[in-house]
């Protein structure tokens, strides 16, 4: 990531989301809902606790047994998708 911070939506917005084990995500303020896959759900759950992307990548590496670069790519892609969902 070459020292660049990953830009996620504001944490206050992410912490209010209701996350279901099925991957169904509901925003109680806007009434919007969307679905995420297993790794997306893990990232969202981590984002509700921390804004430190290095922690998030490390946890994903351990949870899914993937390399740093794969976990990093997933986080970057997911951050883009989240920003788009909350535009």
């Amino acid at each position: 990531m070459n020292g660049q911070a990953v830009e996620f939506p504001k944490q206050a917005l992410l912490t209010r989301l209701a996350l279901s084990d099925s991957g169904f995500v509901f925003d109680p303020v806007t009434g919007n809902s969307f679905t995420v896959n297993t790794s997306g759900l893990s990232i969202l759950r981590l984002l509700q606790k921390t804004e430190d992307w290095t922690d998030i990548i490390a946890t994903l590496q351990a949870e899914f047994e993937v390399s740093y670069s794969v976990a990093e790519r997933d986080v970057l892609e997911f951050a883009t998708a989240l920003r788009s969902a909350f535009k």
Partner: peptide
Amino acid sequence: MMKKRALTSKGKAWAGISTLD
């Protein structure tokens, strides 16, 4: 509070979901 999730031809709610803000 409610957000419309599906509309009729007149823009009325055909489906909706309660919200809290």
